[in-house]
Design a protein around this nucleic acid. Structure first.
Lengths: 192, 192
DNA sequence: GTCTATACGAAGATAGAC
DNA sequence: GTCTATCTTCGTATAGAC
């Protein structure tokens, strides 16, 4: 017999997947229910705050998962190699979804006028990622005053490249940005 | 007496403004009419293709305006200085809108599952910008094989930085990315 | 805890008068 | 060319039965 939290967690994970493709504003409860197979009557039982609440929880869950992935790569590889690992992961997401999926947090920012809570979560998630990357850069010889700016550059450039690659339906923009980012970061680390 | 095209052009320009803040999917006809003051009955008279058509035309108009701005800066300044000019412009947009406004084309990509035409326009617009920037970089000593990748990096990083700055309600991410982009581009041009 | 039914509003689109 | 009115669909949210 399934525990009561199973349906709830399934909805969160389905919302996470759908937000990647359609954004928060573009995803309806019907979409989440169809994708998760969760019972229709349980939505407001589990999420009394409605769409705002499920969006907030799904985005936090997504952000934590991605942060874990980012730190796992940083624990095993040099920063320059880590960039390639992240871009490869994004490339797989784009290819396997035929460019339908992207980053939930970019969508959350765009949808912020309708869902301010989602935009706030995106801000917190970006900060978490930035902290993790800046910390790793310091540990690999980056000049102290450039650790945070370089981390911001990496996040911004990769997120932007995913957007451009989706628009063009090609992995080329992502590949190019990956290569240039590696060159820039390699130069900065060599100077430190 | 106003020419017939006045109301039509006003709707396009209003849609352009609203797309920056709410995206294509998040903007309704009512929003466009309220913002433009255009007569309600004229929507389907001017745009028989409905929302898809007005979105396509407004995005093309926006993209052309922005391309003109990009090339104007490139005609007057060195590439490294041009980056600062673009970031300053984006900073003003963010500040004056209290971080409500961003890039229409990022939104258009996110809304692409509902509005595929809008995503296609975004892809074409990004290509136009890339061509203009790559051409200028070639003219300022960039190695031939890096002109396009560097142009893609500039576009991706700036677009990503605008997203992160909106999420965090701070100009800091944009400023940091601006500085790091200038360093990276300066190094690359010196090598050429 | 899950169901059906339904209220309520928003948004896209159409019809026909002026 | 612009108007009002209306149709339809969709999405959020609630009510009450099982």
């Amino acid at each position: 017999m399934p525990r009561t939290s199973d349906a709830r967690q399934k909805m969160i994970e389905s919302a996470s997947v759908l937000f990647r493709e359609r954004g928060v504003h573009g995803t309806s409860f019907a979409d989440v229910l169809a994708h998760s197979g969760a019972p229709r009557g349980s939505v407001y039982h589990h999420f009394k705050g409605g769409k705002t609440q499920i969006a907030e929880e799904a985005l936090r869950w997504t952000g934590d998962m991605m942060l874990a992935g980012i730190t796992a790569v940083l624990d095993e590889q040099e920063p320059v190699a880590a960039i390639e690992a992240w871009c490869d992961t994004w490339g797989a997401v784009l290819r396997e979804s035929d460019y339908a999926a992207g980053c939930s947090f970019v969508s959350a920012v765009q949808d912020g006028e309708h869902e301010p809570t989602a935009r706030a979560v995106a801000g917190a998630v970006f900060s978490d990622w930035e902290d993790a990357i800046a910390s790793a850069l310091r540990g690999h010889g980056a000049p102290e005053e450039r650790a945070v700016p370089l981390a911001t550059l990496v996040i911004s450039a990769v997120e932007g490249a995913v957007v451009v690659s989706r628009a063009r339906r090609s992995l080329e923009p992502l590949h190019r940005v990956c290569g240039e980012l590696q060159l820039a970061l390699g130069t900065a680390l060599a100077q430190g």
